[in-house]
Amino acid sequence: MPGKQSEDRPLEVAAVEDGGDEGLASLTAEELQQGQEAALALEDMMALSAQTLVRTEVEELYEEVRPLGQGRFGRVLLVTHRQKGTPLALKQLSKNSTSLRGFLYEFCVGLALGKHPAIVVAYGIGIESAASYSFLTEPILHGDLITFIQPKVGLPQPAAQRCASQLASALGHIHSHGLVYRDLKPENVLVCDPACLRVKLTDFGHTRPRGTLLRLTGPPIPYTAPELCAPPPFPEGLPIQPALDAWALGVLIFCLLTGYFPWDQPLVQADPFFEDFLIWQASGQPQDRPQPWFGLTPAADSLLWGLLDPHPRRRNPVSSIQGYLGQPWRQRQGEAEELRDDGS
């Protein structure tokens, strides 16, 4: 099941080109301008936040209850305020692996997004201790989405549609702020209740303004859009856009419906499952349907084809999911077996 996102190197937001409607790599001047405005707003917020950091040891203000999560660069703890007893989630990043700027960036992205029902609420409290930087968010206590996805099964269809709808709304909110999330995977989706009725997106360390130039420095994973795997149009990298998140959402929805990936890498020369998908997508013929896609309905096919178009400018936005909610996304067992028997 899903693994960790590969790292790519963030660079500056590309400059808007004069003399035409199209900017870098087919991004319009308006789109690039939106990314530049987001970057400038974040810089201003980071400068202010650096001046208001609380400099103390975390233990002086908060009592640790239990760990909520652990990553390469830090950990998330459930804590309570020592005086008020308020439960909070505290994300703690080691100074050995995180710079002050990196900490302030992630902290301020969360604040800039404001309140959205499918995004973890960030509180405006940043703490600098001797060995770490920390910030506080609302506590989400039922783990991440990967613990709810049953291998080779996925989630029940109603839960899959609820999760997909809420995540599409969260991503659309991020895009409306001129940002691209870039790290959609089950580990970054927190579950608010045992029935998986509500989920929230977290972890904005990879989020970047639209138009930021990026290069893929590690091997691609299923969530990596194919345009990031191709040689970039500029030495500094590819100017990113929300279509990256649409691709990742399509892969995640497939995982929610099946319990496995549609492919390991979106590279024809490296992954026959991806090549089979492109052949089927090009022909539209039932006999070309790859085996991993058996059991999905025409509505699910249409939704995922739109999100997983290999050409980013033709790829549907994350909001396209709204037109498919309430329709069946899985075939009934008998229908799926019949499809296998007749090759359709």
Rank of each mutant, 00 (worst) to 15 (best):
L93A: 08
A122Y: 07
P87D: 01
I279M: 09
S26F: 15
L104Q: 00
D144T: 07
A130D: 13
M45C: 11
V76P: 05
P235L: 11
E22T: 14
W305K: 11
I240T: 05
R72S: 15
P235S: 12
T86D: 13
E7T: 15
E59F: 12
E187G: 14
A336P: 01
Q331D: 13
D276E: 15
L90N: 04
R208E: 14
P10V: 10
Y223V: 02
L267C: 07
A230D: 11
I174T: 02
P220S: 11
C108H: 07
G69D: 03
L252N: 01
L308C: 02
P262E: 05
E63F: 10
L190V: 00
L256G: 09
C255F: 05
L278I: 12
T28Q: 04
P328G: 10
W247Q: 06
A29T: 15
T224F: 06
D342R: 15
Q34T: 08
S94V: 05
Q333D: 14
R210G: 01
G124Y: 06
L113G: 00
Q36F: 08
C163M: 05
S97A: 14
S344A: 15
E12R: 15
T56A: 15
L88E: 03
P231N: 05
L238I: 13
P290R: 08
G85F: 12
V76K: 01
V121D: 12
H116V: 11
F277N: 05
S49W: 05
G126E: 04
G250H: 00
L167F: 10
G237R: 00
C192N: 02
V180Y: 07
S302I: 00
L53H: 06
L11Q: 14
F234A: 13
P290A: 04
A118F: 03
P239R: 02
R75E: 13
L155R: 00
D264S: 12
F294K: 06
R101N: 12
C196F: 06
A270K: 08
L77M: 13
Q33Y: 09
L303C: 10
L93W: 01
T28H: 08
Q285R: 14
E236D: 14
L216P: 06
P209F: 07
H116E: 10
R9P: 03
R332Q: 14
P286D: 10
